[in-house]
Design a protein around this nucleic acid. Structure first.
Lengths: 160, 160
DNA sequence: AAATTTTAAATGTATCAACAACTATTGTCG
DNA sequence: CGACAATAGTTGTTGATACATTTAAAATTT
């Protein structure tokens, strides 16, 4: 059964274009996550784990404290300790107690983790899939609208 | 700790504007879901359950087969049977075997369910929160970009 | 009409998300 | 310094998600 947003929500009579856009964002995000889950499935890694690896690569060869990883995750509620432990078991990251502050733990991506990311990005499908779906201009516009939406929402929530 | 996308992903050096937009969608969707989770928390209902209720209201006073509810849900993998059962236990929906096809089950929102939705929508916060965050034009533009993105992505995935 | 296939829903399960609660360490303030 | 608060991380719990499997009924094929 094909699923298109316009069909899915056709009956809804949205209270406003804004409410419709909000649902559309969630709907689209679900589809994106489904796609990336399917791409990653053969590699035995969840999309959140994949995201954490990319965060750590962004810092390599330096480390992040666990807290800093959490701060950069897409979903700030998922449990960083356990996610990182999964990655450690696979050999993709290392943990080391931080010198000078025994509360903190530093996380570092390993060579194996870096190679793994490279391998994934060599897949032709992951290279082009998004780039063909929007022009560069459209993508910029989209990002900018999302940024506006979030920043205004945040201001509104803070007021309450 | 404040979370802004530009900060969160500053280190990432995206391969393209399109890949960045995709992550931005997921990031924004997570924030939207967090907001609605928080709004709904005092009412002891998850946002997926809330969504299913609104789907059923869109059909009231007619019914949907369970399958049709599933088709309209934002997340097609969540388990409709169990979600609907939760709503039934709260008295918000009724289930009735379908006449003429004993495989199907028809789902109907109750008076209590409708009243509950009304109550939620009376909250000042849920009335305006999205509408103030974007202009109507921006919301339309955003929806249209998301629709384009999804529909192109779908075409690309089908090709593979 | 019997056998087979398809469809609708329910159920089982492993993993993950969304918290709350706890432990251990460090910071701060009288 | 000692008490208390704040911070970093871990652990526990409950419920939801992402499937796979099963059950039952209907549709289709032979």
């Amino acid at each position: 059964m094909k699923e298109e947003f316009s069909e899915v929500v056709q009956q809804k009579n949205f209270r406003s274009e804004q409410a419709k856009a909000a649902l559309n964002i969630i709907f689209t995000a679900n589809q994106l996550e489904e796609i990336s889950r399917n791409l990653l499935k053969p590699y035995d890694i969840s999309s959140e784990q994949y995201n954490v690896l990319r965060i750590l690569r962004g810092r390599h060869p330096e480390t992040y404290a666990l807290q800093e990883v959490r701060y950069r995750m897409l979903n700030r509620w998922s449990n960083v300790s356990r996610l990182v432990e999964k990655l450690r078991q696979k050999g993709y990251v290392e943990r080391q107690p931080m010198e000078g502050n025994r509360r903190k733990v530093e996380i570092l991506i390993t060579k194996k983790g870096l190679d793994f990311l490279d391998e994934l990005e060599e897949l032709p499908i992951s290279r082009n899939i998004y780039d063909k779906a929007l022009t560069r201009d459209q993508a910029e516009q989209l990002s900018s609208l999302l940024d506006t939406f979030r920043s205004n929402l945040e201001a509104i929530m803070d007021d309450q």
